[in-house]
Amino acid sequence: MKNPEKGMTLIVKTITRLTVGLILLYGIYIVLHGHISPGGGFAGGVIIALSFIHLMLAFGKEVALKKLSQAQASILESLGAIMFLSIALLGFLGGYFFFNFFLHKGSPFALFSAGIIPLCNIAISLKVGAGLFAIFTVLVLFTPLEINRFNKDNGNNSNK
């Protein structure tokens, strides 16, 4: 924004500035409504990651990495995974692993229902969004002689 040489042309930058927030919001909408309409943690997470990737494509990598650096992305990814696992572990309160332990009966078309499923969706979206963004930045920022191990395994035994 301050550095006009970086990134694409003015038209692209202006449009991006207008749309990127909407894309992010749409992603969050998809995540939160995952249990009552098509979509869910994975699709919403991908859209959230795409909003950051969009920013990176339009303004260059520095601007996007200032918003969400690689280290932060990797922390968020691990947090998402641990959150998902702890939700699953909390199911032991009801006697079973992955047990839907509160608000047991979901009611159709109600946003606050379906127990742990929205929480699982949020955890998955964190994991997928941060993971996808991390993969993209690792491939973009790739410089020779950089000791940088890739952890690409998205641990996706979960988003069924």
């Binding site: 997928v128 996808l132 491939l139 395994d153 998205n154 988003n159």
Partner: peptide, 21 residues
């Protein structure tokens, strides 16, 4: 199931591209 399998495919492809670079 296909959604899960697509994610797995994404992980494999990303890893392979990184190795190819």
């Amino acid at each position: 199931l296909v959604l899960t399998s697509i994610v797995i495919g994404l992980a494999v492809t990303a890893l392979l591209v990184a190795i190819a670079i």
